[in-house]
């Protein structure tokens, strides 16, 4: 038996909206740790890794590990039927072939349940090693979205160059070229406290800062990499999940674009770089 209840149903709705255009079908892994997913886009250039920890749910029960194969477009259709302030409960039997989504409004006087057929999905799982990245950039997720959107009207790819003091986004196309440089904000402007949690990752609380780009750079080595803007723009659909985005880059490695989901986990996107021949 798997049962997971999330008070803030809008989180699940936003997560689905952020990944449904990138990945068609995916296996959700339900374990005692939480509700997780790893899936690549059809061209195997990008990957999404989602983790919603069991501790972040209002109620969570998972008697044994269950894999639920879902078509994300269909899942999104069902979740769109939930209001933003609804509580959402997902339920599945161990051997069942359906998942039930139950929506409850705040007054608890409207209760809906939707059953969706599960699918058998043959997917490849990638082993992603823990890596020390050469550059880590934290910036406003809105600003990152804005930059990716603006540059994609000029060119198809973006070159991201991170130095100690700035991160520079460059593109060029038929009509010309564009450079956007965001300077690192002085230390302490990015107010946050990190609390190490027992499993995977860290919990970061950010307090809203009043102005500026709030760019925080942690650099071992300057890095310059080029990526297809189409994918980055797709990742930016997760912008509403978190005020900040974290980019991790290392020479000749896929970039990791992470949005934290408050008190629950994260959605991470990996994108393979373009390499000059």
């Amino acid at each position: 038996m798997f049962e997971a209840r999330i008070l803030q149903g809008s989180i699940l709705k936003k997560v689905l909206e952020s990944i449904k255009d990138l990945v068609t079908d995916a296996n959700f892994e339900c374990t005692a740790n939480g509700f997780a997913l790893q899936a690549m886009d059809s061209s195997h250039v990008s990957l999404v890794a989602l983790m919603l920890r069991s501790t972040g749910f209002d109620h969570y029960r998972c008697d044994r590990d269950v894999t639920m194969g879902m078509n994300l477009l269909n899942m999104s259709k069902m979740l769109k039927c939930a209001d933003n302030d609804d509580t959402i409960t997902m339920k599945a039997d161990d051997a069942g072939d359906v998942v039930t989504f139950m929506f409850e409004n705040p007054k608890a006087d409207k209760i809906s349940d939707f059953q969706m057929k599960l699918m058998d999905i043959d997917t490849e799982h990638l082993g992603i090693p823990d890596t020390e990245y050469e550059a880590t950039v934290k910036m406003s997720s809105n600003e990152f979205q804005r930059i990716c959107r603006d540059l994609s009207s000029i060119g198809d790819t973006v070159t991201i160059a991170v130095t100690k003091d700035s991160v520079k986004f460059t593109t060029s196309g038929d009509i010309g070229e564009a450079n956007i440089t965001c300077r690192r904000t002085s230390d302490g402007d990015m107010k946050e406290e990190k609390v190490k949690t027992e499993e995977d990752g860290e919990k970061v609380h950010n307090t809203k800062s009043s102005e500026g780009q709030n760019v925080d750079i942690d650099l071992q080595e300057p890095v310059t990499l080029t990526f297809a803007l189409r994918y980055l723009n797709s990742f930016c659909k997760a912008t509403s999940l978190c005020e900040n985005v974290r980019l991790q880059l290392s020479k000749e490695l896929p970039v990791v674009v992470q949005y934290l989901i408050e008190d629950m986990g994260y959605v991470r996107f990996y994108l393979a770089p373009k390499i000059e021949e």
Binding site: I128, D156, T159, A272
Partner: peptide, 14 residues
């Protein structure tokens, strides 16, 4: 702008 790599050239399948 260069040749697009796939993730499989960086990460192995498990």
């Amino acid at each position: 702008g260069g040749r697009q790599k796939t993730l499989k050239s960086f990460f192995s399948t498990t």
